[in-house]
Design a protein around this nucleic acid. Structure first.
Lengths: 325, 325
DNA sequence: ATGAAAGCGCTAACAG
DNA sequence: CTGTTAGCGCTTTCAT
């Protein structure tokens, strides 16, 4: 109850508070005193007060991760990668869900600053997201998944992934390939759609505007796009889904319309870890989310360590494989 | 860079630091001074230092949420519910992934204590999880999904859910109904399996031990159990899956073996938001994860507010509905 | 190697 | 209503 402090430990061990602090910070202390301190710590069940330490050093042993959708497995997979690297280095990860809302995002950035977070990893809600509330003062930020501001970034090869997904459908014999992507103001959504157009043009086909749908990056968006695409007369025979959730929506709705693969070709950009259909049901361009997180976390740790090289950009390639694994 | 403090604001506004503090804490201050402070705050871009505030008050405006698997949509849905309630009350939610490891869990609890978290919500890794590292000192803890220690808890009606899932398969005409559940040392897994047995006995059938499989609460576990159950001669004709991920694994593997519903009956306890099959493919006993989170968060806020009634137990009922929605 | 002492930025008595 | 003052628990010079 009555919290024990380094003063209690110091008294119990017959040393000064400074010495107790030194023991905890690995600063040279004579073996006898160190031992006495350790005994006192055990006896009193002392746990150092991180808040005090943070206030004094202006540096918490924690980094914040700001993502637009905590319910998207893509981001939780990424979060796992980040956590593994960060915790190895003794940092906690504080997960913040911006919900794609720039205001919430800004608020989290301010909180991160005012709680002395050592750094921030962010999948920005918008390309114009202002990182200054945290980055001002030289605090390190690394952008993940989506570029933002003038900081390090780790992103996927989105355009190539879009082209690759389209190419696979083409190779499977489909010729009217639609594309369902996320909001046009999100870089990843645009790039993947551009990849789709690239692949068609490379095969001598001019992409039809009617075959490109921009929607939300969510299951419901995929369902709606299928309804839009398959209600008219000039139906597509295949669909490229711009992210994992859109892919789920597309597959769900196609199944309900009795148009599921192989009747309709489907290629998804992103993994489907919770698909309930067999692995070869749809083509999947797997995006290495976990690896992206790990890479970004390592970069952030370097920045925290004082690295001040110019901003770097790392691009990770997707990989074609059976669904979900 | 040079952080501005309430002292800077005070000087700029021609008042004392205490008055600045009062403005931020909604304590009565004369309109003129309040206005002067507000102007100074804007002019200097002052952001209050939460670490200092927390150190002084021994109370962070944040609660920790400890869960065993951040990649399980069940827990992220719950996390959303918690976040909505907590943030409404001005609290941040710090998400901690214990990975089902009691050591990691204990470590997070210690960190929560030493960072003065206002409270903790925990889906305990084990029924013997020790909450003391945080709860000692009277700090409030609410258990979610799984009971733990002698604190408030919000859980699902697991046994009833197991029985309900089984009953639906029975009503659909299946008579050799297997059960695939999580680790036998996890309360939720045991309870759901007990519900399965209840339902069979209620129909005059003694549950066969060979038809009950305990595994991990993960996709791979569901796949393995299907292999075990369907390799012999006395195959089941239906399967109750003890959680969402097991359900995914079961459905995946059955599809690969060409035994997917309706050839085999499948009932899943928990939602399948990312299923790629139509809604009526499998029976789903939806568990209100979001609501569980919201309820637990409200209880925690009450405790933080000083409520010290004896521990409460809230049980939420599942609901039968088409898959995933 | 060790101790004394001065804060990190804020809030909460306590006077006035 | 408002200012002064004394810490919250820790780290870090600066002496010794």
């Amino acid at each position: 109850m009555a919290v024990t402090t380094i003063y209690d430990v110091a008294r119990e061990a017959g040393v000064s508070p400074a010495t107790v602090s030194r023991v905890f910070n690995g600063i040279s202390v004579s073996p006898e005193k160190a031992e006495a301190v350790r005994r006192a710590v055990d006896a009193l069940g002392f746990v150092p007060n991180r808040t005090a330490r943070t206030l004094r050093t202006q540096h918490a042993q924690a980094v914040a991760l700001v993502i637009p959708d905590i319910e998207n497995p893509y981001y939780t997979e990424m979060a796992r990668g980040i956590e593994d690297i960060a915790s190895e280095a003794g940092y906690s990860v504080v997960l913040c869900n911006s919900d794609g809302d720039p205001d919430k995002e800004a608020s989290y950035l301010r909180i991160a600053a005012s709680t002395h977070m050592a750094g921030v990893l962010i999948a920005a809600a918008s390309p114009t997201s202002d990182l200054a509330p945290f980055a001002a003062g030289g605090r390190p930020v690394v952008a993940v998944d989506r570029r933002a501001g003038d900081v390090d970034a780790v992103v996927m090869a989105n355009r190539e992934a879009g082209a690759e997904a389209t190419a696979r459908l083409w190779d499977a014999g489909f010729r009217r390939i639609a594309c369902v992507s996320g909001p046009a103001d999100i870089e990843t959504a645009r790039e993947r759609a551009l990849g789709w157009a690239d692949a068609l043009r490379a095969r001598g086909v001019e992409p039809e505007p009617a075959l490109l749908q921009h929607s939300t990056f969510r299951v419901e968006g995929g369902r709606e796009c299928v309804d839009a695409l398959f209600s008219g007369v000039d139906r597509p025979d295949a669909v490229v889904a711009g992210n994992n959730l859109l892919g789920v929506g597309v597959l769900q709705r196609l199944a309900e319309l009795d148009l599921a693969p192989p009747r309709t070709g489907v290629a998804v950009i992103g993994s489907l870890p919770f698909a309930t259909t067999p692995a070869d049901f749809a083509t999947v361009v797997r995006l290495p989310a976990r690896e992206m997180g790990m890479t970004a976390a390592r970069m952030l740790l370097e920045r925290i360590g004082g690295d001040d090289e110019p901003p770097r950009l790392v691009t990770l390639r997707g990989e074609v494989r059976p669904a979900g694994r």
